[in-house]
Design a protein around this nucleic acid. Sequence first.
DNA 1: TTGTATGCGTTATCAG
DNA 2: CTGATAACGCATACAA
Lengths: 336, 336
Amino acid sequence: MTKLNKPTTIKEIARKLKISPSTVSRALNDHPSIGLVTTMRVKKMAEELNYEPNQTAIFFKQRKTFTIGVVLPTLSEPFFSSAISAIEAVAEDRKYTVLLGQSLDDANRENQIITTFKKHRVDGILMSLGKNTTDLSFVDILASSQIPIVFFDCVPESAAVNRVYCNLASGMEEAIEAFVSRGHKNIALINGPETLLAATERTSSFREALRKQGYEYNEKYVVHTDLTEEGNHIAMEQLCVLPERPSAIVSFNDYVTLDVIRYARSKGIGVGQDMHFISFANYPLWKYMENPPLASIEQYPDEQGRKAAEILFDILDNSDKIGLQEIVFPSKLVFK
Amino acid sequence: MTKLNKPTTIKEIARKLKISPSTVSRALNDHPSIGLVTTMRVKKMAEELNYEPNQTAIFFKQRKTFTIGVVLPTLSEPFFSSAISAIEAVAEDRKYTVLLGQSLDDANRENQIITTFKKHRVDGILMSLGKNTTDLSFVDILASSQIPIVFFDCVPESAAVNRVYCNLASGMEEAIEAFVSRGHKNIALINGPETLLAATERTSSFREALRKQGYEYNEKYVVHTDLTEEGNHIAMEQLCVLPERPSAIVSFNDYVTLDVIRYARSKGIGVGQDMHFISFANYPLWKYMENPPLASIEQYPDEQGRKAAEILFDILDNSDKIGLQEIVFPSKLVFK
DNA sequence: TTGTATGCGTTATCAG
DNA sequence: CTGATAACGCATACAA
């Protein structure tokens, strides 16, 4: 049978010990001005009475909740579940707790989540934007409430915010180089929705990487998908009907490539023979596939998550001294 | 330029309106005793001053945080990321917020997380146990603090707690039936660590399912893995060296099967020809594999998560009237 | 070294 | 219908 304790308070400890609550409070917090004996007595009594500080009272008083909010599109992508694991690890070290919100790429949900986080008085926010977010007004709102926010991975274009992200160009360059050195002439790009910063970046870095290799950029070899399964198939079809079918394809990410490879297989196209693939994400399960892509571009979810969290905590520790932070990781080709 | 507002309080509204704080509070909460005009005036002023209630004060006063904690082994398994998405959805409906903790199958971390949650005064906890948890003393501690907990998926053996889980037997039966009807004689089980409830359950339901089919149970066809990649390979080897090599294998879950299929391929064993597989989890990516297992056993992460959350909220709404809850979902074979 | 008094923002009780 | 007052649990400036 378990007792139903109504939680012990500082006052009770004080009463039992016939000292004042403030002394108890100080003793429990190892305040230097309190005598060793008193401190010991208090701690012993606290232990006996099974005292646990009421954090809600402390949060209230200290105007600090030791909680950070993390907003990301979805946990079903391994990229984000890795990132949040890293974030959680850092938070744990710092004795912070993590509030979770999935936006599911819905801008309204993002706003809703942020509003809730704000109501809960989170000390700070880490966020990776959804694919459809255009309105960033919540940034100003958070600023006026003095809640710092650090973006990671999918970050706003504006440099007026703290950002941690991957430089896609380095990975793209390596990808194109890998294809070129293997003799591919017709290299295509299956890109994401043109509204996405991440997509325009891919296009420009694709273009630039081709140029560096002395290749000509042909816009027929760049198609777009809305990132749905159907969209991915349509994009692939567009490439397959070209007079000179590409033999090498860089795609927006590994999820697109999964669909595209499946499609290729269904059409009798030899994956890794007739057609070769590279994409972004470095999805961990390629090693189980019989015909994986040639390579995948690592974007370091853990490092991004960890760094973003560290920046946030630095700001929280030291809000005055820290200016706007921007960390860019290189992306990196990993052969499969 | 954003203003740095120090948050507006009820008192300020009261002062500006020359009425008392309690009236403001009541007006904001649509208390029936407040006149319509006053209510309007208050709300208008609140709007103007950009008033936002200080939730930490409310939490403190109400002794309720509208926060639930979710403890699970890892988000990197799609099973759990699905589950938490469902949980989050329910929580959002009820205006609750979700605190996240990953145990990484470490019992110490579990205790740590629960302690933190308790300090944060979560209103309730949802939990799926790690693979190594034996000590459930935190259950009593939570009970004495009157923090309800609902377990899902990986639940304690004790029926003295709220539990939502899958009945493995139904899926196992369907699996064995599928193998038998396809003419397999030697059916093996690659099970998890024997310390796991989920493993002993699989063994007994495996045994029972064979019996129902009029097959004899042969313990040589049951091997164990510690669920690491190496352990999975070793288990598979044990089966491969048997004089009558099994042609059909049920394994602990799809992750084991991934490793095992990969191993089989490396040994030149024809997956789906020489050897056929079924496992638990219904991992969403089988459709991309060239040689997927014959089938996978769905364990309904969303339904489990949703149901567990609903039970928790029912308890929170109505703690007296609700007795111990136990919901068992059937597991179900899904062909690939 | 310890105690006293005060306030954090809100709501509930009671009185008017 | 509205106002005054107290209380939640804790920390801290100030007093002793």
